[in-house]
Every structure is written in structure tokens, then in C-alpha cells.
């Protein structure tokens, strides 16, 4: 089961902070997962934007080409603004 986290503006737009999801058939990469989730509706379109969206798998930043495993922890969030 994937654990998916959403943070900050992405969390507010999708309306949820986290969810568990069975890795959908035919989805192999983070980018494919993002597009799959974006198809849920207008609130999810933020996941399509490669420029405004960062992706982490198992708490490490990765590209949209990162391969997914069934039990990965995935997170979607905007650029970071610490300090």
C-alpha cells in the first residue's frame, strides 16, 4: 500500500493531508502517479505542474521518472521555504 502525503498549498488544494492507496495497475513512476491523481478533478490539477510541484519518495526528493514500489511513502508539495 502506498502512503501518500500532501503538504502546504498542495494539501489545501487537494483537500487532504494523506491517504493510503494501492499502487494502481499500469502506474510505474511518480510522474505517472501524479497524473493519475490529477485526473480526480480540478482540485488535483496542481499535481500535473512539473515546475510548481516537488515529489519525494521515502522522504527523499526525486524526479517524475522515479520508479515506485508497492509500499513506498510518496509526498507532493510546493517549493520549500524554510529559514
Amino acid at each position: 500500500m502506498l502512503k501518500i502525503n500532501y503538504f502546504a498549498s498542495v494539501r489545501e488544494q487537494t483537500g487532504i493531508g494523506s491517504e493510503n492507496l494501492e499502487l494502481p495497475a499500469g502506474i510505474n513512476t511518480t510522474g505517472e502517479l501524479a497524473d493519475y491523481l490529477a485526473a480526480r478533478g480540478a482540485n488535483w490539477e496542481v499535481l500535473r505542474s512539473p515546475s510548481d510541484l516537488l515529489i519525494a519518495v521515502n522522504q527523499a526528493i526525486c524526479s517524475r521518472e522515479q520508479q515506485l514500489s508497492a509500499d513506498d511513502e510518496v509526498a507532493f508539495f510546493p517549493p520549500m521555504t524554510g529559514g
Binding site: 503538504f7 508539495f77 520549500m80
Partner: peptide, 14 residues
Amino acid sequence: IMDYLKTSAPFWKK
């Protein structure tokens, strides 16, 4: 450390 922390640690300010 401060320069990296600004953009490379997952904090978000509202």
C-alpha cells in the same frame, strides 16, 4: 547551512 536550509528542508511558511 542557512543557505541550504532555505530551499532544501521541507518547511513551508504561511
